[in-house]
């Protein structure tokens, strides 16, 4: 890939110039609904977050430890709006260097992972699967409050890191905002910027119909009858051109130039694939590194 000066969302993420990722986790009462046959929406949301953190940490792990390419915030909304990571030193903190998150999971489970066996088949191997967040579902859905909280955290951060890759906010929810229309709050976040572009807001929607999967749509046509999905689509950032080109190449799909950072019931790992901390390999992309 040739290097283009002047384009946005091109700054490499490094220890000297990290980026911030804020995960907004819907922990409202509606998340206790059943989802996908065996679990609940809240257990799915916790699983998504744990996988995303695991994936990010694996990408930062070098021989000298976990490098701080990312500052991570995990903000829950349900019974209030607050940081929700609880492992050791993590409690109550808005943004945490990723190395501290790596060293402080709540527990580590052993899980089976499917791998190619080298002769065309698949085999199962056991890997460590750390847990930072448990399923929780209480009270209402103060999504606007959560977006405001993220704005407050990131307003300071972009002032302190004007030359960094812009922060990304991931809102993981079933889509039912209980404290108003989130459009204004979302717009406020998306107006924050560094010299490399505006803050990105991506939404990961866990809907009641888990069989309907949509990834980076450029219109609401596939979920027009779901008002919550439409609302989340509307507040999602348009994917930067270079990122969508990269995702298209790695997934061998043609995404529209107007597609948005919105995922409905689909694998969310691709939302962090683009974070540029160095060349990703064909093999890493295809196997999703940790799943």
């Amino acid at each position: 890939m040739s290097y283009e000066s002047g384009a946005k969302y091109m700054h490499e993420i490094s220890r000297a110039s990290p980026t911030a990722l804020v995960f907004l986790i819907d922990q409202s009462g509606s998340m206790s609904e059943k989802w996908g046959g065996s679990g609940t929406k809240s257990s799915e949301v916790a699983m998504i977050l744990n996988r995303l953190l695991n994936n990010l940490i694996m990408r930062c792990t070098k021989s000298d430890g976990v490098r701080n390419y990312f500052s991570i915030g995990v903000i829950g909304y349900g019974l209030g709006v607050k940081p929700v990571l609880k492992g050791n030193t993590l409690f109550g903190r808005d943004l945490i260097p990723i190395s501290e998150i790596a060293d402080n999971p709540l527990r580590i489970e052993r899980r089976k992972k499917k791998e190619p066996d080298g002769v065309g088949g698949v085999m199962e191997i056991e890997v460590n699967f750390p847990i930072w967040l448990e399923a929780e579902a209480f009270n209402g859905t103060p999504m606007c409050g959560a977006l405001d909280y993220a704005h407050k955290v990131l307003e300071r951060w972009v002032d302190d890191h004007p030359d960094s890759y812009p922060p990304t906010v991931f809102n993981i929810t079933d889509g039912q905002a209980g404290d108003g229309d989130p459009a204004m709050n979302a717009a406020k976040i998306k107006r924050l910027e560094t010299n490399d572009g505006n803050v990105l807001l991506f939404n990961i929607n866990i809907s009641s119909d888990s069989s309907q999967m949509v990834k980076f749509p450029d219109s609401v046509s596939q979920f027009a009858n779901d008002p919550y999905a439409v609302s989340l689509y509307n507040i999602s950032s348009v994917m930067p051109e270079n990122i969508i080109a990269m995702l298209g190449r790695s997934e061998e799909r043609n995404y529209s130039r107007n597609c948005k950072g919105f995922i409905l019931n689909a694998d969310a790992i691709s939302l962090i694939e683009f974070l540029n901390i160095g060349t990703r390999t064909d093999q890493q992309i295809r196997r999703g590194i940790d799943d």
Binding site: P116, G118, M246, R249, S250, T279, T281, D282, Q283, I285
Partner: peptide, 17 residues
């Protein structure tokens, strides 16, 4: 086919298929 996802040699033999 310039790409930022090149096929690379791997230390895990399974990925060299």
């Amino acid at each position: 086919e310039q790409s930022n996802t090149p096929y690379l040699l791997a230390t895990n033999r399974l990925y060299n298929m």
